[in-house]
């Protein structure tokens, strides 16, 4: 089967300095939602930059939809990947929300007649239609990130990478962005591969698959339920559990397997009555 992203024996070294990745392998299937988690400095953002061709591997290769990333293919590869960064203020160029979405379309030489419809459609997907004439700086952080997501979506990428896109948001903004991602995944299904880079385990719990890295090494890889049952490994790597997992760790009587929050609440309510 075709892979969305295939990382093969990757080695990456900062200029003559520490080796971050050594013989690192990771394969992501089309349509998967993968949460890439690790503490600050674990190498997760470096990995995203390598996939985007912003950094060049010292050894090994990266393949995106069967295309090997190289100097000659980097533009093709990038056209398939959309990226949303941490700081919502660093990614705006347009005078209005709609202009901002148009900017990417213009760069890709989309027919101007088609643009208004495409802009309206993507703003609708992220729930920002009524803000299309607003100046971006008047929006809240969460709204800005949803516009950034719309700008990326307008280019119809096969893969979207969000690099700590909620880290600078307040709880309300964070929730709005995560709800938008969940809904995107439902709407696009296998046509959209999602990689969310985070150290917030409650966010990682929403993904299909959780990949934990530390110092450029793969520590854990599995479904949220599998990864979150390894509490000691996560703590040892500077990470926590989703809140429901932390609760279970303190219970005298524990459920047999990892439960998410609503499952845990109903388990507690039936077993303890």
């Amino acid at each position: 089967m075709e892979n969305a992203i295939k990382i093969n024996n990757l080695t990456y070294q900062y200029q003559n300095q520490t080796t971050l990745f050594q013989d690192f392998n990771l394969t992501i299937d089309p349509g998967q939602w993968v949460a890439l988690v690790g503490h600050n400095g674990s190498g997760k953002s470096t990995l995203a930059k390598l996939i985007m061709g912003l950094l060049t591997p010292t050894q090994g290769g990266i393949t995106v939809f069967n295309q090997v990333l190289s100097e000659s293919t980097v533009n093709d590869v990038r056209s398939q990947i959309g990226m949303v960064f941490q700081n919502p203020d660093n990614q705006f160029v347009g005078a209005t929300v709609a202009d901002d979405v148009a900017f990417g379309l213009e760069n890709n030489e989309i027919d101007t007649k088609l643009m208004p419809k495409m802009i309206a459609k993507t703003l609708e997907i992220v729930g920002m239609s009524e803000y299309q004439d607003r100046e971006p700086h008047t929006l809240s952080g969460g709204q800005k990130q949803r516009v950034a997501l719309a700008s990326v979506l307008a280019l119809q990428p096969k893969i979207i990478i969000l690099d700590e896109a909620t880290a600078m948001l307040d709880p309300e903004g964070r929730q709005a962005v995560m709800a938008t991602l969940t809904q995107l995944k439902e709407q696009f299904g296998d046509a959209l591969t999602l990689v969310t880079i985070t150290h917030d385990m409650d966010e990682a719990a929403l993904a299909d698959r959780v990949v934990v890295i530390n110092d450029g090494q793969l520590i854990l890889d599995g479904t949220p339920a599998q990864v979150f049952s390894e509490a000691d490994v996560l703590h040892h790597n500077g990470l926590g559990l989703p809140f429901s997992g932390e609760v279970v760790a303190h219970l005298n009587q524990k459920p047999q397997k990892y439960l998410n929050e609503s499952e845990l609440i109903s388990w507690l309510s039936t077993s303890n009555k």
């Binding site: 609760v247 303190h250 219970l251 005298n252 009587q253 077993s271 303890n272």
Partner: peptide
């Protein structure tokens, strides 16, 4: 806190469980 929460759940578990 988690501790206050789980203390409450645990005490209920032992009285009624």
């Amino acid at each position: 806190t988690i501790k206050a929460l789980t203390d409450l759940i645990n005490s209920r578990g032992t009285t009624h469980g």
